[in-house]
Design a protein around this nucleic acid. Structure first.
Lengths: 209, 209, 209, 209
DNA sequence: CATGAATGAGATTTCATTCAT
DNA sequence: AATGAATGAAATCTCATTCAT
């Protein structure tokens, strides 16, 4: 990659990173372009060299989210067990330094999707990818064989990521000071509960209660 | 209740209903006071006779949401079975005429909660009420006895409403034209899948696979 | 006319008058909305209660110009002789207090017409009205009978208002201090020269030179 | 002329040509320096190597206009008859490929002259040159002898170029698609009508009507 | 009680100009 | 000589809020 294009990518990346931070902290429509420029340490006008307008910044972040989810699914796919995969999925948004930033951003993304067709398309793509990714995860997992409910993998996938997103949605309610570790713990708890429900062999032992 | 105060309530109610519509359609921060006044068929100034400012309108709607959830839980508590209760819970947001309005509004409410402490307090209250309500629901249900996983009712409750909110979150992605009935069907599907997972006696029959 | 609507008209009128002044002084695209609001002694935002945007202000002034020309033609039509009618036509823009304001504005209007289809339509309408008005003027004038060149009234009309507009165009070059009376004198000079050319009976006496 | 300075002239010329195009199409103050640089296929910065700022570009084009008019007068002076000279004068702006570009530019130049003293000076010079040029044209023409109105050559000159500029002003109203040939025809029509008025011997024959 | 004209701060966006490379 | 990234002032437009009527 040439110096030039890497510079450009850096600037874009720098702007997007600042925008993500601001958006997460204040929301799309309460964040001003000036906020972003200030957070990035550049002038307002410079943002417009790299993005046609604010909406394009949002769209670019939406695209970034799509890519991030794809990578997440890939990482989850490499986990040895489905439980571990689920743990990866459920805690993906718990690593951010400024807390809940990512969750709040994704919430805004869904809210925006309900109004902005362009964002809607990306978020729908992401939803599809998530569903398919989890279906694939299930298909290749050993746990499936123990699936005691003979549930459709697709239905399981939908359930899993409804739980994941619901838990993420709730996570924005945690006090701002909540450390990332505690966030993780909560999400893991939910993931494990769900997993037990889906696949726990324990259920058999208790079958006759 | 005096004529006067009922009038006042009507006006407030009328404004809040219009505000809910506008907020659902455009989001809190893209809805102007003028939008609300127009939708309510009154003047902008009149809104300020009933609400100190825009934030109070949002706060009042948040309070309204809290009340609505309380009523929902009550209704769910009267259902003969837990499955039916869950069906009521999961489809509560599918009745609105302009589709997804309510889901989008709740999404905005959570997003706002992550930024606005006042809204955060209300939404946290709601979350608590939801959790307790579902715990109570489970406690008084027959299904609990069949709980094959010996799960903590509190964990089950959290799972249930994570699923509920996650599914609602995803529902804003449905094409705007999706009829309410189809929305209901999707939510019911999720509710039933979850219920089967939690309580289905079928799981025993398959226990030895 | 009700108090209300006259108020509204007054505001609109007040804004338009200030805008005309500013536009004449600085040109459409070098006049800021702030300039107009300041000149009108009101806030910027108020302009937007009466005009959707800057273009609408320009369009309204274009419409005003159309009306002004219609009235001018009517006044000219009431003159007893064609010479007097022409004198009225040629000096219409010489009454303004701030000098050349009106000429400069009309120049800007034509320039804008070459770029903005909406303004173009109005200005074309005005051109048509001017041509037809002058044709009518000629038709009902005694001078026509002496028309020594048997020129098409339409060609004469076109010539007359080409001269009128050309002279107005040149008038913006007069030093800013030039008093209105001197402007009038120059325009009258041109009008009379043209008239002599068109209708002077003197031409016969000199015919045999 | 050295290679270097001819290069410089080429660059300047190239920039000015592009600027003329842009200015004609969009107007001085709606054309950005970036528009010009793009149209010239160079970088913005380079324009500033040849011109101090945007105003200097306009001033240079005004000077270019002055030179063009001088050349036009020279060409007109070489015409065998005054009618032909007038035809040359009146159609000078009809040769441009993108239609009306030149007319619109001259309109902008006059409008600018009414605001910008520097441009005003140049445009006044041009006006003087035009007047003197046409006076000279008349002086050396045979038609003068037939001048049936015993008009002052200076008055005739003023009339001629009022008509010329007025007709040019009106020409910007022609639909953008109007072919250059048709533009020419219209201008020639006006020129001929004016000429007949000024010098036509036919007037004598009709003297007794 | 009800209106909506009015304000002015602030948001988005553009653009002439500079300067390091 | 040439580039184009960067700046920041300024322009257009919006909107929460107030207040005279």
């Amino acid at each position: 990659m040439s110096q030039r294009s890497s510079d450009v990518l850096d600037r874009r990346g720098q702007i997007l990173q600042s925008a993500l931070l601001c958006f997460g902290k204040c929301g799309f429509h309460q964040t001003s372009m000036h906020d972003i420029s200030e957070s990035a340490g550049i002038s307002v006008g410079l943002i417009y060299r790299y993005f046609k307008n604010k909406e394009e910044v949002i769209a670019a972040l939406a695209a970034g989210h799509k890519k991030a989810i794809a990578e997440l699914l890939e990482r989850a796919g490499e986990a040895p067990t489905l439980l571990q995969a689920m743990e990866i999925l459920f805690t993906s948004h718990c690593t951010e330094h400024p807390p809940q930033i990512l969750s709040a951003f994704v919430l805004d993304l869904f809210a925006e999707a309900s109004r902005n067709p362009r964002v809607a398309r990306v978020v729908r793509d992401v939803a599809r990818a998530k569903a398919e990714g989890v279906v694939a995860l299930i298909a290749r997992s050993d746990e499936l064989k123990k699936n005691p409910h003979r549930l459709d993998p697709r239905a399981i996938a939908e359930l899993i990521f409804a739980v994941k997103d619901g838990a993420m949605m709730h996570s924005v309610l945690c006090p701002a000071r909540t450390p990332a570790a505690q966030h993780r713990e909560q999400q893991l708890e939910v993931a494990r509960t769900l997993w037990r429900l889906l696949f726990s062999p324990i259920s058999h032992a208790n079958g006759h209660n």
